[in-house]
Amino acid sequence: MGRRSTEILASGLLAFAAGYVLWPPRHVYWVQVSQAIGELAALAIVGISAVLVGG
Rank of each mutant, 00 (worst) to 15 (best):
S5D: 05
G47W: 05
R4W: 12
A36V: 08
V28F: 09
V46E: 06
V53L: 15
G19F: 07
Q35I: 07
S34D: 06
P24I: 01
M1I: 13
Q35C: 02
A41M: 11
A42E: 09
L52I: 14
V53A: 14
Q32S: 10
L14E: 02
P25L: 08
A36Q: 13
A50Y: 05
P25H: 08
Y20L: 14
P25V: 10
S5K: 02
V51W: 06
F16M: 10
P24C: 06
A42G: 07
I48P: 06
R26P: 01
P25C: 00
S34F: 13
A10P: 03
F16Q: 06
Y20M: 13
V33S: 03
I48N: 00
M1A: 15
G12S: 00
R3F: 07
V53T: 02
V51A: 14
A10V: 15
R26E: 06
V53Y: 03
L43W: 07
L13S: 06
R3M: 08
G2D: 12
E39L: 14
W23M: 12
G2R: 06
R3A: 11
S34W: 07
Q35N: 14
G2E: 11
A36F: 00
A18K: 02
V21L: 11
R3L: 12
Q32A: 14
H27A: 14
M1R: 13
G55T: 07
R26I: 04
L22H: 11
A44R: 07
S11R: 15
A42V: 09
V46T: 10
A10H: 07
P25T: 04
I48L: 14
H27L: 10
A41I: 06
S11D: 02
S34T: 02
A36M: 12
G2C: 01
A17E: 09
H27F: 14
A15D: 03
E7F: 01
G12D: 01
V21T: 12
L52T: 12
S34L: 06
I8C: 03
S5M: 08
L40T: 09
A18Y: 04
L9P: 03
V31F: 10
A50F: 11
A36G: 02
Q32I: 05
P25M: 03
P24T: 05
V51G: 03
M1H: 12
G19E: 03
T6D: 07
G55R: 05
T6S: 04
A15T: 15
S5R: 05
L9T: 09
I45C: 06
V21S: 00
S11G: 14
W23K: 02
L52G: 08
R4K: 13
A50T: 13
M1N: 03
A17G: 09
T6M: 10
Y29D: 10
V31C: 05
W30C: 00
P24M: 05
I48G: 08
V33A: 12
V28L: 14
V28S: 10
A15L: 15
L14I: 08
I8N: 01
A44T: 13
V53G: 03
L22D: 04
L22N: 07
V51I: 15
A50M: 10
A18R: 01
V31Q: 08
I8F: 02
A50Q: 00
V53M: 15
G19D: 09
I48E: 07
L52Y: 11
A41K: 11
F16A: 10
W30S: 11
G38Y: 13
L14N: 06
A50G: 15
A50N: 04
R26V: 04
V46Q: 13
L9I: 04
V53N: 04
P24R: 09
